[in-house]
């Protein structure tokens, strides 16, 4: 068996961030919050395009049982989760995460449940169109419904 080599290294990040100047951490955090807020609208606008892409992919998947459609849905749902969670859209983030779970399970089992995926995508399209809307009760009800679908799907395994 080859022996592992264990050695100390210089942490060049320590040196770089300790140079004189820069910002206090409070200033840096404030600056980051402001910069992120400045791209919020663009990011949220992209959710509509991603929802439309999910719809195209699920239609393709239902029609042709296409595995690349499942992979595309996973990637796009992961992107939706990234944006929704960054901007504290809790219900949309949960729906997108649940869709990732569903597709991931599907890949493992080798049998895609297109109807369950379709229900999630319908929910994501609705939740994505609710940016800034006050009606959180409806959103929570939708997410509760998705959890029931996931539980049912897990029970079928």
């Amino acid at each position: 068996m080859t022996e592992a080599r264990v050695f100390k290294i210089e942490n060049r990040l320590t040196k770089a961030i300790s140079l004189p100047g820069g910002k206090t951490i409070a200033e840096a955090l404030r600056g980051a919050d402001e910069r992120i807020a400045s791209v919020r609208d663009d990011c949220l606008a992209s959710l509509l395009a991603k929802s439309a892409r999910l719809q195209q992919l699920v239609e393709l998947g239902k029609r042709e049982a296409d595995q690349t459609a499942a992979a595309g849905i996973y990637t796009t749902a992961n992107e939706v989760f990234g944006i929704a969670s960054a901007f504290e859209m809790a219900e949309l983030a949960e729906a997108a995460y649940g869709l990732c779970d569903l597709v991931d399970d599907t890949r493992t089992r080798g049998a895609v449940n297109w109807p369950a995926i379709g229900v999630h995508i319908d929910a994501i399209r609705f939740l994505g169109s609710q940016v800034g809307a006050e009606d959180s009760a409806t959103r929570r009800t939708i997410v509760a419904g998705l959890r029931a679908v996931q539980a049912r799907f897990a029970g079928d395994a």
Partner: peptide, 17 residues
């Protein structure tokens, strides 16, 4: 690889200075 994800990172680090 996700354009908006990268933009969020870039803006965050820009805010950090």
């Amino acid at each position: 690889s996700h354009a908006e994800g990268l933009e969020l990172l870039v803006q965050m680090f820009a805010g950090f200075g």
